[in-house]
């Protein structure tokens, strides 16, 4: 972790609803994204991973409310900016220019009545108003070839492209303004494995070429282990473990990470009896006391149902952290 931080999330809290009925979707999340790295965010549905992405980009729509914390963006040059303090005009200039987002089911977020060209140049028109038309068209063509689609597809409408190509158009659009950070929210969930691998390889290559950082959100942890540098695992709105992807694969400290990793049958090696994790993910409206995972945890003991464990390194000086009483210093 020698590269400097590009995004610093400190004590972020997000609620849905207000007052006593509020549901705490994200609680006390601390997370750092370093320049040029791929940070994987894993978790099941309802763990708060998508909410976190929307909060960071200030795209939460009511009843979602950010109730606390800060999100500091460190530009290449200039002063750090707290994204949560930006006004709406500043925010408009900031989004896509610095952080862009590829949504879940992105294939369907293209407008069906506009051509690929007009949707790609639209981004440039909004942000680079002084750019001449020819330059915009040239940039759109360049973007398409960047993601491996031939230029003559510029005039196509979304329905003329396959799912994989539409997804790549979305990725091209996210890269249009050379952002520092690209957030991918389940970018390949709707695609087949062959296409998924192709797109991810392309992303890896583009990242090396264009030098941006990636936050990769998915429920498929085996995919993250292959494609990300570091992984943060979320459960019930909190990060329960964060470590390098190889470390987490070799030794996972949190019982939930362990369970998650052992929920995927392997393609190679001996066939083992797998059990998954008993019980079901927590209901955010009725969260268990203490550690949210304790009702499902095979290794729970005395403090687990009373006090919430804090995210801390298991041993002093370690560059990974875990929120579990098993690894806390008493």
């Amino acid at each position: 972790m020698t590269t400097p931080a590009v995004l610093d999330i400190r004590g972020l809290n997000v609620d849905y609803g207000l007052g006593s009925k509020a549901v705490h979707a994200v609680r006390d999340v601390n997370l750092t994204l370093h320049r040029g790295e791929v940070l994987g965010l894993a978790g099941e549905s309802g763990s708060g991973k998508s909410t976190l992405a929307y909060a960071v980009t200030r795209l939460l729509s009511p009843p979602g409310v950010i109730t606390g914390g800060e999100v500091i963006y460190h530009p290449r040059k200039g002063e750090p900016i707290d994204i949560l303090d930006l006004g709406s005009e500043q925010l408009r200039a900031f989004r896509w220019q610095e952080i862009s987002l590829v949504f879940q089911g992105a294939m369907n977020s293209l407008n069906p009545v506009h051509t690929v060209r007009s949707q790609l140049t639209d981004v440039l028109k909004a942000h680079r108003a002084d750019m001449p038309r020819a330059a915009r068209d040239a940039r759109a063509a360049e973007l398409l070839s960047l993601v491996g689609i031939s230029r003559d597809r510029l005039g196509s409408y979304p329905h003329q492209l396959s799912g994989g190509m539409r997804q790549r158009v979305m990725i091209a659009m996210a890269l249009a303004l050379d952002p520092d950070i690209v957030i991918l929210d389940e970018p390949t969930t709707a695609l087949d494995v062959v296409m998924q691998r192709q797109i991810l390889r392309q992303l890896t290559r583009l990242r090396a070429q264009l030098d941006f950082s990636v936050v990769f959100i998915t429920h498929d942890i085996s995919l993250l282990i292959e494609f990300s540098d570091r992984i943060a695992i979320m459960y019930g709105g909190r990060i329960v473990e964060e470590a390098g992807s190889k470390e987490i694969y070799e030794t996972s400290n949190h019982p939930y990470s362990h369970g998650l990793l052992h929920s995927f049958p392997a393609l190679h090696g001996p066939r083992r009896e797998l059990t998954g994790i008993p019980g079901s993910p927590p209901d955010l409206t009725a969260m268990p006391s203490g550690c949210a995972f304790h009702p499902r945890c095979p290794r729970k003991f005395e403090p687990c149902d009373q006090r919430v464990p804090v995210l801390a390194p298991p041993t002093p000086g370690s560059d990974r952290s875990v929120a579990c009483w098993l690894h806390a210093e008493h």
Binding site: V193, V194, Q196, R197, D220, S222, L223, I225, E226, S245, K246, Y249, L261, F264, A266, L267, H268, G269
Partner: peptide
Amino acid sequence: LIGSAPDPDRVAVEAGAPA
């Protein structure tokens, strides 16, 4: 199909671990 499926063990192989 098999080559495209996510497989964490591949990382172990690339890292030189015996697999």
